[in-house]
Every structure is written in structure tokens, then in C-alpha cells.
Computed example of a mutant assay.
Amino acid sequence: GLVVLDLPRVPLAGPFSHVVLFGPVTTGGIGNAALSALPVAAVILVFGVLNALVDVSRLFARGARRGPLRTVSRALVIAWATFP
């Protein structure tokens, strides 16, 4: 692809001598990076929409009262309540 930015190459030392940081930034490389980031962004987006549509704390609390997964649900209620 077309070189957008030419950064100096910085080789690592020791057992990582085959790894080079930076180098030329190309339009093809930017496109490949954006394409490889799409699955991660999709998972974040899906969980964000699911969290907006479903009251997760109420769902965990309902499971903590009854059902076969009571102990797991109680642990999830505590974890969800302490999550920032």
C-alpha cells in the first residue's frame, strides 16, 4: 500500500531480536488493523447493547433466589455489585 508515515525501525534486543517496532505505516496495514479489530469491537458493542436492554443486576438477583445455579448467581450478584 501507499506509505502514510515512515517511522524509524527500532529492533529489540536479546531473545526478541527478530521483532522490530515501528517502521513504515501503509494504507494496507491500517486497513488490515481495522479489519482485525472489527470482531473485538463487535463483541463490545453486542454486550453494550445487551446491557442496555436487559437489567443484568435484576436478572442475577432473580437467579440468586431460586434455581439450580443459586450459588453461581449469588457470586455473580456480588461481582456485579463490586464492579466499577
Rank of each mutant, 00 (worst) to 15 (best):
S36K: 10
N32F: 10
L50A: 05
A37P: 00
G48R: 05
L53I: 13
N32V: 08
I30P: 01
A41Q: 14
A33P: 00
S57M: 15
V43T: 09
L50P: 03
V43W: 03
G31N: 08
L38N: 09
P24R: 14
A37T: 10
A41I: 13
A41P: 00
T26P: 02
A37V: 10
L50D: 03
A34E: 09
L53R: 09
N51T: 05
L53W: 13
F47S: 01
P39V: 09
A37D: 13
L50R: 00
A52E: 01
G31H: 06
F22P: 02
V49H: 02
V43A: 13
A33L: 11
D55C: 01
V25M: 04
V40G: 08
I44A: 07
V56F: 02
A52T: 03
A34N: 10
A34Q: 12
L35I: 05
G23C: 07
I44H: 01
I30M: 14
V43R: 05
V56T: 08
S36M: 10
D55S: 10
S36G: 06
F22Y: 13
A33G: 10
P24G: 15
L45K: 01
T27M: 11
T27V: 13
V25F: 02
T26W: 05
G28D: 15
V25H: 01
A34W: 09
G23W: 00
V40Y: 14
V54G: 02
A33W: 09
N51Q: 07
A33K: 11
S36W: 06
